[in-house]
């Protein structure tokens, strides 16, 4: 996200979304709570799929089956995370544009989503991926990415 010009962050902060979230402290708190709840669901679904790929959890179902079950919930919660995140972002976009952890968070998030799409595609389209070393490595990288997103998210408040 480093490539985005300052004008982008200014534009977002000046938008009507920003005025909504800045009207009352309550709004921010409520939207942040929804953001965290949606992120919890998102991480839960990611975790269940990746653990299954690594051979833990729902072992009596195939990885492909688990991936299929969880897919709508992963994307649904990601959408909610993105919307609430966008609103939270609007309240202090310019400041966040200068925050290293925030920029990292968005970059890693993009990467994590991409990796998850690839894992999902491979699992559901090709039976041979079931239990292969490649997909296991991908699952480990995916978990690391998502944990980094959470870590960087928390770091925004501290750095």
């Amino acid at each position: 996200m480093q490539f985005l010009p300052l004008s982008f962050f200014r534009w977002w902060e000046a938008s009507w979304i920003s005025s909504v979230v800045n009207t009352a402290q309550w709004y921010f708190a409520i939207i942040e709570t929804i953001h965290i709840m949606a992120f919890t669901i998102l991480l839960g679904t990611i975790f269940i799929v990746n653990l299954r790929v690594l051979g833990f959890g729902l072992r009596r179902q195939s990885s492909a089956q688990v991936a299929r079950y969880l897919k709508p919930y992963t994307w649904g919660s990601l959408l909610l995370v993105a919307i609430t995140g966008g609103v939270l972002f609007a309240s202090e976009a310019v400041k966040l544009g200068r925050s290293e952890p925030f920029l990292w968070k968005i970059d890693i998030l993009g990467l994590a989503v991409l990796i998850h799409i690839v894992i999902n595609r491979k699992l559901t389209s090709n039976v041979a991926t079931e239990g292969s070393l490649r997909i296991k490595i991908a699952a480990c990288i995916s978990l690391l990415c998502w944990f980094s997103v959470a870590l960087a998210g928390r770091a925004i408040a501290f750095l």
């Binding site: 919890t40 669901i41 991480l43 839960g44 679904t45 959470a150 870590l151």
Partner: peptide
């Protein structure tokens, strides 16, 4: 910050999984 991050990751893992069990008990998924 380190302990808090661990706390939040633990939360995401446990509640995220509990959420899935809950949805099954409610007859919504799987």
């Amino acid at each position: 910050p380190i302990i808090e991050t661990i706390h939040i990751l633990g939360l995401a893992v446990s509640v995220g999984i509990v959420f899935w069990i809950d949805l099954r008990l409610m007859g919504i998924i799987m």
